[in-house]
Design a protein around this nucleic acid. Structure first.
Lengths: 203, 203, 203, 203
DNA sequence: TATGAATGAGTGTTCATTCAT
DNA sequence: CATGAATGAACACTCATTCAT
């Protein structure tokens, strides 16, 4: 039976809901934001929302999946655009210098994202999934960059790649989180500082 | 009216409630943990809990205040025990190498703490208070250390102290958060890495 | 406007819906079965269903009407095939010995039927209609049989025909209901027992 | 810790809720009766109801358990008060001649009861429990009566006791159900008729 | 006619908070 | 001070019905 609306229409509708949900979750937090908030904000009826998502939690999770996909895309782009390891690491930092968790809408996005990450800790399946994903997208890619860098002599041979990759991402997390919770946090300067420290450490 | 029970008794009772609350909040998260959970876990009646705290949120906030106080005490201890800037910074790192957010009950404590920090973002008063407190306890103390270090030549003159202090704390946040959300995160190694990077940067 | 599709087509479609509805109502009960269940089971779209029936309740009622019609047909057949009163009563029992509410799909049919009968009690109009129908189809026919039987001396003169007819049907109801609610109920034996009791009582 | 209200108080409250629930279920049926209906009818708040019962279904089931208990008590009383088998069987019929499903509140009770019995068919555990209970309370007791009656020569040796017991109860069901669904059904006369048939069959 | 997306009133259930005992 | 029964606003989710295409 032919669908009465196009897939494109459905995607658009889903995106509409996700966009509104993000704003609502950012404003009140996932638990305190209600489906009615999303209804109000999106102008889409409650029933319609439940046609696209089977629960509030599914909206949350799908929202976060989108987020991860975007981030992954950004990272891939860096890998494809730049060739040397130092350049690539530099650009990864720049990704975050550009993303600006210090102002809307980046701030809200990150706030919701970190809340989600902590929230997900109580669901073993979810938490394992996210950990695995992180291991591939975040750590894996960076390890690969570092490996190539070490192999072709761009980088020092002295460091443990896994460790350094983990260090990189935890610095990013730290700078981002600090920005979210402290509106006076000098995000750019700190990140530049970290970038300098990190790059110098690699060489 | 003279108090019928001693202040000590009251403090003990409050502590009991806070301890149970921490465990409940860790297990389910603040929103999902119920007063009844705390009742069950603490063995203290619902009415009694409301004699000591005027709302669930107050329990949350007071719990976090306790946390901050403890941390402050730890920091003060470092300052009083050690004299040189490099030593002091080293010991601040060690504080976290000791605290171990990688295993219970430290993990739960940090989980609840970070959730609280994000939660607090929606209450301007609360968020300002915490920011201010942070500025004093975390940034202020460290800036003081760095200043002394620069003045007596222990540290390089090249850096902006505020910035470096912020960098320090955001690295700590990053490592801690990473540990909470990733059970395979090599917390100690990363922290040692950061410590090395950081100390070398200061000199 | 001339009908675009044949009446036969419409009847076939209606029957399809009713058949699916019966299965869905049997499975979950009228209230818990949803239109979507019927859609899923029948493969007919929601809109189409509402083209044939104006509400879920109408499906229910029409389904029961079908049921009554079938039963009526069965009874008429007995009346036309057999001539003496004892034979006819015997065959009425046999109708139920054959119908087997002890196994699918008879069981489901009876389950839905009795639920419907109880459900209908809250709608005075519906309940009156069904009562009237019963009085004619069930009681009326049997009274007629008994009357003829008494008049031509096949049966005892001693009994009140209305009463006996009511007794007959309530025994049938009892046996059927017992079978539905008790999977170990010895339906056939009980019914034979009743038949014996009843026939002997009539003579 | 001493309870703040007596057990008696709690029982009274529970009974209040059950009484109101019975009336609401009778009026609209279990599915259509809402908790708010019960709130309105009982004057007990929604929260309070959920302090006594954990779900609407639990109210339903407990209501039916009460019903069964009462019936069991009635049966036991017959057994203890009367000694001979014919007398006992007579009195079991009388129980139902007295119970009057033809008028309120007996009618409502039976309506709800039969709806429950049919409803319960979709829950295997529940349905098995009820079947088992029936086997003991209803069939078991009657079989015992019949056995004693046969052994001391009060009753005919010719019949299968289990079968007869099942026949008895299905006649009762039939008469009761007929009364519920047909307001003109001559309940008393039919039951007396059945009693006569049944007793004569036993001798 | 057929389709299935949209609607929104309605439901069972939860839970922070209160307060009589 | 302690207790836990009572309260009721709030919420996620459902589903019969409608209607634009």
């Amino acid at each position: 039976m032919a669908p009465i609306v196009s897939d494109e229409y459905k995607m658009k509708k889903k995106k509409q809901i996700l966009d509104s949900a993000l704003i609502c979750f950012a404003e009140k937090g996932y638990q305190l934001a209600t489906i009615d908030d999303i209804v109000q904000h999106s102008g889409i009826s409650k029933g319609a929302i439940y046609n696209y998502f089977k629960s509030k939690e599914e909206i949350y999770i799908e929202l976060m999946n989108e987020n991860t996909k975007e981030l992954d895309k950004d990272i891939q782009e860096v890998l494809q655009t730049y060739n040397t390891a130092p350049e690539r690491v530099t650009r990864l930092f720049d990704l975050y210098l550009r993303n600006k968790p210090s102002e809307s809408p980046g701030k809200e996005k990150f706030l919701v994202y970190y809340e989600f990450r902590l929230f997900s800790m109580r669901d073993e399946g979810l938490s394992d999934l996210l950990q695995e994903r992180k291991k591939h997208i975040f750590i894996g890619n960076l390890v690969e960059i570092l490996k190539e860098g070490q192999e072709n002599g761009e980088l020092s041979q002295d460091f443990n790649r896994e460790l350094v990759a983990n260090t990189f991402w935890s610095m990013i997390h730290g700078a981002t989180l600090s920005t979210i919770i402290d509106k006076d946090f000098p995000y750019h300067e700190v990140l530049k500082n970290m970038k300098a420290m990190f790059i110098s450490y690699l060489s």
